[in-house]
């Protein structure tokens, strides 16, 4: 992982409850850079996040609310949080279900600004 991306992702993973963060190529579902706790399958997070955000954006476009900027998938054992950088990449965090979503969202937006 390059130093540039390391610092960006570390700011996200420092939030309590975050299990991993990564930068993903949206169209391909491949990892650009990641910072993950043990047991988190980076390639699965990247591939599935790319796919689920594409599906979500198709619903958004059909309902007239435009391009994806932020996605929050809440599940019983964890959350997936995604910010689109606006330049073909996504910044992704996977976290505990009780994580401070607002704080992670802020860090993801900061990261997206730095990545694009």
């Amino acid at each position: 992982m390059s130093d540039r991306f390391k610092g960006i992702l570390d700011a996200i993973t420092r939030v309590r409850g975050v299990r991993g963060a990564m930068i993903v190529v949206w169209q391909d579902g491949l990892i650009v850079s990641d910072s993950l706790m043990e047991g988190v399958r980076g390639n699965a997070v990247a591939a599935l996040t790319s796919s689920v955000t594409k599906y979500a954006e198709s619903v958004m476009l059909a309902s007239g609310i435009g391009r994806l900027q932020f996605l929050h998938l809440q599940a019983s054992n964890g959350v997936l949080l995604v910010v689109a950088t606006g330049s073909e990449t996504l910044v992704v965090a996977i976290a505990e279900p009780s994580v401070n979503v607002g704080l992670v969202r802020l860090e993801l937006i900061r990261a997206a600004e730095a990545v694009k």
Binding site: S51, V52, I65, L73, Q74, N77
Partner: peptide
């Protein structure tokens, strides 16, 4: 796709999805 994502990433059962777009 959410069900599959939650299952494969061991997130449990999905509960809700929130999306923020450029226009809503």
């Amino acid at each position: 796709e959410m069900v599959r994502t939650a299952r494969m990433l061991k997130l449990g059962d999905w509960q809700w999805l929130v999306v923020e777009g450029t226009d809503g």
